[in-house]
Design a protein around this nucleic acid. Structure first.
Lengths: 211, 211
DNA sequence: CACAATAAGTGACTAAATCACTTATTGAAT
DNA sequence: ATTCAATAAGTGATTTAGTCACTTATTGTG
């Protein structure tokens, strides 16, 4: 129904009672269906106001909200995965970027000096914008989902371990490589950037967990 | 509660009525909670039998089951994303593989001659096993989730466009490179393998969609 | 004109049933 | 002794009718 009506994030759904009438079931049944959609962030409930379409409608990959991250070493696991996956994405971006991509990339690089909107505006996250410049939406969604893993830790990492100036300088260099269409340089710079972050975190966790 | 009790896929949950008593709510409320868990495949209902823990409990990345893939060109989009991401994963596998990984890899390569269990047994899917050999679980889960995108099309692809013998031969060569610890070769062979599949599909879709 | 009271609309939840389905048990026929 | 159909208990699926909690636009008063 959301698809058929072409509803987009922010749009309101019909009320539970109305949906119940339309589908000829009762409200508890409707609620069960809506709760499933809520689980993948397709819709959100606002008590007393209504239910609204959310960002999940156009997000094919997502993080399982029902798996709690307990093991602390998985922060490094995540960084290791990013070190493998993101450099080639940067290379692809360097090969395929449009002028619009460059504009968005520059904007998000500047935002890394004051990353205040990074959580609610994913397109302002540098690494997401970088993946977006590859022209492949699925690639962008993959990186986006990956960055949602251990999101809580990542916020703390940004606040405690990240040197914002250095971060920004790294990002600017990557943007330059992408602008010049230098795939190898973009990949290498991205790898160095992530390795530096990994090292900074690993050293604070103590050598026994650094592998 | 699933975590606390250490329940694993296949284990049964308490009945709805019992859960309702335990949490001091009524059954419709319990059902809403369970439906959310169902949406990310943490649990599954079996009418008349019970509700059981499912594979989603230890899957951090997953495909949004509520987004229907309509555009046919996204098959190529998926292949393009895999061409970017999987070669470096293969390289990482060549660098980190253990003997156990090699055994699993050989097994899954053989399975690609008769890929009958590929859907219900993800570890038998060659590209998942390859990612697993990297030693990074998140990397494996990422590839696993990616392969779930357009799963329906992928089954058809396997049945119609794939030359099983050639597929198997490609896989064997990749395994050899991983065994020898030759990261560059593993990456190159994986890229060639995926590019060949992409070309086969692109040609059947007609040149206008091949980009 | 500002602002508090109001009323209508919405989600959240309850309570007590009934229906649909599965599965282990039971007991009779073979 | 074995087989197999009837049975009963347990489980999920859904209904019905209503109440509570919250939001928001409207209205009437100061």
């Amino acid at each position: 129904m959301i698809e058929a009506a072409g509803l987009e994030p922010g749009d309101a759904l019909a009320s539970s009672r109305e949906l119940a009438k339309r589908f000829e079931v009762t409200t508890p049944t409707i609620r069960e269906a809506l709760r499933r959609l809520e689980a993948t962030d397709v819709i959100r409930f606002r008590h007393g106001s209504g239910t609204y379409v959310s960002g999940g409608v156009n997000r094919r990959l997502l993080v399982n909200p029902h798996v709690s991250e307990s093991r602390s070493e998985s922060v490094l696991e995540l960084l290791d995965a990013r070190i493998v996956l993101e450099p080639p994405v940067a290379a692809a971006a360097a090969a395929a970027r449009t002028d619009d991509d460059l504009t968005a990339l520059t904007l998000s690089a500047d935002n890394s000096l004051k990353p205040q909107y990074a959580d609610e505006r994913p397109e302002l996250h540098f690494h997401v914008a970088l993946a977006g410049a590859s022209g492949n939406l699925l690639l962008r969604e993959t990186i986006e989902a990956l960055l949602q893993v251990r999101a809580r830790d990542q916020i703390e990492i940004r606040h405690r371990y990240t040197d914002r100036d250095r971060d920004h300088a790294d990002h600017v260099r990557i943007v330059e490589a992408v602008r010049d269409g230098d795939a190898d340089a973009a990949a290498a710079l991205t790898r160095d950037h992530l390795v530096a972050i990994r090292e900074a975190i690993a050293s604070t966790l103590g050598p026994e967990q650094a592998r």
